[in-house]
Design a binder for these strands. Structure first.
Ligand SMILES: [Zn+2]
Ligand SMILES: [Zn+2]
Ligand SMILES: [Zn+2]
Ligand SMILES: [Zn+2]
Lengths: 267, 267
DNA sequence: CGCTGTCCACGGTCCACAAGA
DNA sequence: GTCTTGTGGACCGTGGACAGC
């Protein structure tokens, strides 16, 4: 996670006067310790937690390169959240809601307890239209925590993307999803970061997984493992775009189910 | 999780690599040994200790049936603490900062041969109003450790609850205390668990002692030993409810004293 | 209202130590 | 003496509450 810092990054002193202070890796504000794996200030800590919890879709009004500093960190939530991820903040470290404390007046918060199904065995899905027919009531079985996990070493044989039904299905998806690209590409194609994030977070912030690079289905060379992984991640974003475009017609939990059906946990 | 570990539940290996792991009886998290008499994880261990120490009143926001699992164990303190008790965690094994030297025998004492009989003939207490008048400065005498002990075998003859002044006094207590019932009854009436807990803990978490079943003072049959014990436990909860309802007017220590005056330790 | 961030209570990991075996 | 076992406690990083914006 964190490379060997010259100093131990744990906030050793809680003594009131001389508490060791560090610099928030996100915004540069002063920090007193690690949060979700990263030396961060309290503001970025709370922001990250709320971002993981709340069902907000962030978008950047500018060119996705907003600089995040102490004074301007609230200008763009999209770029702030992406910097949190880029700096290594771990969404899995965000825990569940806890018991409330007695001192409060009754406050109501609706936490959508999204459950995902576990898909075992082969990834045998058809076109998206057939996926939609999946009975998701049955799929609501209590498997509490699904994650989207992408590791760098792809060891098992991976079928060619071009021949896979997923890829075939993708080609039928709406053309505007296919055409959707991002103006600013943040990931180096040969050096994708590893990911291990809750599927829900990935669904809500798909560009964490991959940038919307231009899609190209024509084969031009034998695919390497890196190619396959990159394609897979790009396809995930494409699927999410597609699913989100039907958001008006479906329940959110249902869409989560669709995503879950498509991508199974690779652990 | 270590599922197939069918070894005796003493954490034999502390060796770094293959330390034997068990499953916390409370939440299912991995555990390395017994805590307070029960195979439990470190989290439940600390939670139980703090619950016995701190002056917190837990309450369940839901229906008192919250499932306690690793991921969701912090959602309801009430149900977590009750599960600790139900699984056999022994509050007496929680030591105090002061008297640290508790013998292992004391810690491992499950439920000794100590007999409880509070409903003896000479327990002449009057109505609660008279109890309030008790000089509690005198009662403040250093009696550090009171226990509420209920064992299953009630051997000595016990007078009928209906004729006892305790029962008579209860009938004068506020009607809303009488009417207070719990939506979910967890104890099987014919199979109460034995109890041996500090009185303070019982005072703070009365539903450990008994559920708030509907009260009925009318005699309809000769009371069995089981009936008397059940009534006594139910009455204890009623008394605690009553005492707590006057919390605004009295010091907590005073209330503890009241309870202590009413129920004395027979160890 | 809704989001932000300060501040605080508490959760859980890890360790020293004490009592037995 | 060593080893096992289970304490309390320090510690850091969680979430909660609430005021401010
Ligand atoms: Zn920051
Ligand atoms: Zn931006
Ligand atoms: Zn546990
Ligand atoms: Zn509960």
């Amino acid at each position: 996670m964190s490379s060997d810092e010259s100093r131990p990054p744990s906030s050793s002193d809680r003594s009131p006067e001389e508490k060791a202070q560090f610099e928030c890796l996100i915004c540069g504000d002063r920090a007193f310790g690690k949060h979700y794996g990263v030396v961060a200030c309290n503001g970025c800590k709370g922001f990250f937690r709320r971002s993981v919890w709340n069902a907000n879709y962030y978008s950047c009004r500018f060119d996705r390169q907003c600089e995040i500093t102490k004074d301007y960190r609230n200008i763009c939530r999209y770029c702030r959240f992406h910097k949190c991820i880029a700096m290594g903040m771990n969404p899995n470290a965000v825990q569940n809601e806890r018991d409330r404390n007695v001192t409060t007046k009754e406050r109501k918060r609706v936490l959508p307890e999204v459950l995902f199904t576990e898909l075992r065995g082969d990834m045998s899905i058809g076109a998206p239209s057939s996926v939609i027919k999946t009975d998701y009531d049955e799929a609501m079985s209590p498997v509490p925590y699904k994650r989207l996990i992408v590791v760098k070493q792809s060891l098992s044989p991976v079928p060619s993307v071009d021949a896979h039904p997923v890829a075939l299905a993708l080609m039928d998806i709406e053309a505007n999803c296919n055409r959707q690209t991002d103006p600013f590409i943040s990931y180096d194609e040969d050096n994708w970061p590893q990911l291990d994030i809750p599927l829900e977070v990935a669904f809500r912030h798909p560009t964490i997984v991959a940038d919307r690079t231009e899609l190209n289905y024509k084969p031009n060379r034998p695919a390497s493992f890196s190619d396959v992984r990159g394609n897979w991640r790009r396809c995930f974003v494409l699927y999410v775009d597609w699913a989100r475009s039907m958001k008006e017609f479906n329940e959110l939990s249902f869409l989560d189910q669709v995503i879950t059906v498509v991508y199974r946990n690779l652990t």
